[in-house]
Design a protein around this nucleic acid. Structure first.
Lengths: 186, 186
DNA sequence: ACCTGAACACCGTTCAAGT
DNA sequence: ACCTGAACACCGTTCAAGT
């Protein structure tokens, strides 16, 4: 990449991080370009879609979560490990308000710039769930897709201001339900 | 209301029902006015906000749900009654895609045209929950606000195409969790 | 009373013209 | 190669002018 292009790319990303943090994932891209001091076409050149921009903003977080899942995959207490990771995954999606809807859409759209990251996240969760299930510590009647759906729903809930006060409690209820049905025979 | 105004009101509502059914709660109001054959100002006169239009579209459904809750309030099996009503409530919100987000926002906004209906819905659910709890058939550590949050999350989930295949199963898991902890001593 | 539609201030997206 | 910004086709909302 040419030096001036690199500079613009970085500048757009930095400003986008600010704007999207404040206004959410549906912030005006025009506004981002304006504040970054670049032409609208420059933003579109580097980030052809809103998903591409969000993917770039969240890339590090996705990687960190997947890596952490890998580290935890052999944990001695896969039940608490799973729940802890779920909490972290949900916290990640809340970095940018409204991001979860784009992630969910991306999971079934292979053309989306967010697709790969979301699949990685889903897979990571599925592995932790599977580990807990093998130890009899999580209910057997669900899989990675169900877990992804639950994460999404909880992330959305925590993103709705009127529901925020209930988010933690609802999380606990659902976490308990996931671990429910484990036969727990040490 | 003058006869011509009444006619416009009905026409707007009828067209809005079609358009919002097809395009969701964030459909273009301009488009509705155009298809209804009225000026944009006429639509705004009758429905000053998007919430007002949605409230009018959903009014009958809200009433029906609240009334049904009243009828079921003295049911002999308050656990299955509660779950059945939850299913109906979620189905109602799905009449118009994207409606649930507006409902959630309205619950804490007394100025919203949707506020009263949403509060009524929440209260109706709270009563059914309370009834089940008194019989020891539902977990005691939740209230009407938690139930409203769960309904909202499940309604949102069922509104995301990639998650639809998991919606029923996730509903069952959560329904079981709500009834969990009931001591169930007949 | 009620209706109309132009006017205003925004979008997202594309693409010819520049360097 | 890369950047710019006008152009196009849309929004939501308001409000003067009409009947």
């Amino acid at each position: 990449m040419r030096a001036d292009a690199r500079k613009n790319y970085d500048q757009i990303l930095a400003i986008a991080r600010e704007v999207v943090t404040q206004q959410g994932a549906d912030a005006s891209l025009r506004d981002v370009a304006r504040k970054a001091g670049v032409g609208l076409g420059t933003l579109y050149r580097h980030f052809p879609t809103r998903e591409a921009l969000l993917a770039a903003l969240l890339a590090a977080s996705f990687d960190a979560l997947a890596q952490r899942a890998g580290e935890l995959a052999t944990s001695a207490s896969p039940d608490t490990t799973l729940i802890t990771w779920l909490r972290e995954a949900i916290a990640m999606t809340q970095t940018y308000s409204g991001a979860i809807a784009l992630m969910v859409a991306a999971i079934s759209d292979e053309g989306s710039a967010l697709h790969a990251s979301c699949v990685t996240l889903k897979t990571a969760g599925a592995e932790l769930l599977s580990h807990a299930q093998k130890e009899g510590l999580a209910r057997a009647d669900m899989d990675g897709n169900d877990l992804f759906a639950l994460i999404s729903a909880l992330a959305w809930l925590a993103d709705q201001p009127p529901l925020v006060p209930r988010a933690d409690h609802v999380f606990d209820i659902i976490a308990e339900a996931i671990l429910q049905g484990g036969t727990a025979a040490p």
